[in-house]
Simulated scan of single mutants.
Amino acid sequence: MNIMQYQKIVRASALYDFIFTLPFLTPWTFLVLHKTLNAISPVPHFDPIHILFVNLFGSIVIVWSILRIRSPLPLYGFYDSIGRLLFSTWFFYNIVFYQAHPVLVLFAVLEVLWFIIQAYGYHKIRKNFSSTPSVAINDLS
C-alpha cells in the first residue's frame, strides 16, 4: 500500500463520519434522528443535558472529519484508528451490559471495520517506509 492509497482510506472514513454524524450536530437535527430511531425501536427520552453532550460529540467529530477530508495525513488515520477502537469498545460495552438500541450493533461493527482498515493500512505504509532508507518516518505526518 502506498501513501496515496492510504490517504483515500483516511478520506473515506472521514466522509463516513461526516455523513453519519451530521444528525448529532444540532438539537434540531438530533430531534429528527431521535424520532427516526424511536420509530425503529424505543429509545429513552433525552433531557437537555444529554442533548448538549450529543451536540458536543457531533461538533467535535464533524470538525475532526473536515480536517481529515481536507488533509488526509497518514498520522491522522492512525489516530483515527485508535479513536475507532475506543468507540467500538464503548459501543460493545453498552450492547453487552445495557439494553442497547439495535442500531448500535451496526455502528459498532462499522467502527471495528474502520479500525482494522486504517490500523492495517498505517502498519503497511510504515513497513514500506522503514524499508526505504531515503524516506524518514516523519514523512508520514
Rank of each mutant, 00 (worst) to 15 (best):
I3S: 11
M4Y: 09
Q5V: 10
K8A: 05
V10Q: 03
R11W: 00
A12N: 03
Y16P: 01
Y16H: 10
I19N: 05
F20K: 06
F20D: 07
T21A: 06
T21M: 12
F24T: 07
T26D: 02
T26C: 00
P27V: 02
P27W: 06
T29F: 04
T29H: 04
F30H: 05
V32H: 13
V32F: 10
H34A: 06
K35N: 15
A39Y: 12
A39Q: 13
I40Q: 09
S41A: 15
P42K: 10
P44D: 11
F46E: 06
I49S: 12
H50W: 04
H50Q: 05
V54I: 01
N55E: 08
V61I: 15
V63S: 03
V63E: 06
S65H: 07
S71Q: 14
P74E: 12
P74R: 05
L75D: 11
L75K: 14
Y76I: 03
Y79K: 09
L85P: 02
S88A: 15
W90G: 07
W90N: 06
F97R: 12
Y98D: 07
Q99Y: 13
H101S: 08
H101K: 12
L104C: 10
L106W: 09
E111W: 00
L113D: 06
F115A: 04
I117Y: 02
I117D: 00
Q118M: 11
Q118T: 11
A119K: 14
G121C: 02
K124R: 09
R126H: 07
F129V: 15
S130A: 13
S134I: 13
I137G: 05
I137R: 12
L140S: 11
S141Y: 12
S141G: 09
S141V: 02
